[in-house]
Computed example of a mutant assay.
Amino acid sequence: MTLHEQLNQDMKQAMKDKDKERLSVIRMVKSSLQNEKIKLGNKELSEDEELTILSRELKQRKDSLQEFEAAGRDDLVEKLETEINILQEYMPEQLSEEELEAIVQSTISEVDATSKKDMGKVMSAIMPKVKGKADGSQINKLVQKHLS
């Protein structure tokens, strides 16, 4: 089942269940997908492009969550946490810490990185491998740890 079909099915279920928060998040994702489709000239989105859009939406909410927590806006924090949980249901399963460590170490040896100067080279090689399966900031920390 494609992401689009899954979203349509979940949207119908959310309507039946009168789950306004889930319905809102699904509509937002569908809107983002449609906007991207229009931007690319109405061609069908690949799985990779859909994953990129989902990742972008998730990252925006995580960034907002940090801002709202810092500002003490507990009402908005709860709402965003719910949205993040719903969005994560559509993301691929996240890699474990051990799997990430292994990918980081193998990529560092692949690109012959020796110092923090090679950080960009390592990150650009790793990101396509873990797209949607790991948080970029977490990977960044691991790469820095191994290159120092």
Rank of each mutant, 00 (worst) to 15 (best):
V143G: 07
V111I: 01
S115G: 06
K39H: 11
Q88M: 11
D48G: 04
E57H: 10
E93Y: 03
Q9S: 08
D135S: 02
Q88C: 04
G41V: 04
E78Y: 09
G132S: 05
S137V: 15
K12C: 01
S46H: 02
A113N: 00
G132K: 07
K145L: 14
M127V: 12
Q94I: 02
N35A: 14
L100G: 02
I108Q: 02
A70I: 09
S124A: 10
T82H: 08
R56F: 05
D63F: 02
S31D: 14
E97V: 10
V130L: 08
I26G: 00
L100S: 01
K59P: 00
K30L: 08
S137P: 09
I103R: 04
S46N: 04
Q60M: 13
K129M: 08
Q60F: 13
K20F: 10
S46M: 09
Q88P: 05
K129P: 05
E57W: 05
L76Y: 12
K18F: 09
E57F: 06
D135T: 00
K117I: 09
A113V: 06
L58M: 08
D63Y: 06
I38P: 01
G120T: 10
E50V: 01
L76S: 11
T52A: 13
Q105V: 09
Y90K: 02
L45P: 07
M11Q: 13
L54M: 08
S32D: 13
Y90V: 03
G132W: 07
E89A: 06
I108K: 03
L147V: 07
A113K: 00
M28A: 10
L142Y: 10
S137F: 15
D48T: 11
Q6M: 12
S31T: 11
E57P: 04
E50N: 12
N42R: 14
E110G: 12
S32K: 15
L40W: 07
E57A: 04
E69A: 13
K79H: 11
K39V: 05
N140L: 14
E93T: 09
K141C: 12
R56K: 13
D17H: 05
Q88L: 09
D48M: 12
L7Q: 02
R73I: 04
L87N: 00
R56C: 01
K39S: 13
E44I: 11
D19N: 06
K117F: 07
D74F: 10
A71T: 08
S32W: 09
K20R: 14
E89R: 03
M28C: 05
N85H: 15
R27Q: 15
E99D: 12
Q105W: 00
E49P: 10
L142P: 09
P128W: 09
S24W: 03
T2R: 10
A70N: 13
K59V: 11
Q60I: 12
D135F: 02
K37Y: 08
M1K: 07
A14T: 00
E44L: 14
K18E: 07
I103N: 05
E69R: 15
R56W: 06
D74L: 13
E81H: 09
I139T: 00
M1H: 11
M28H: 11
S64V: 00
E67Q: 15
P92R: 06
V104S: 06
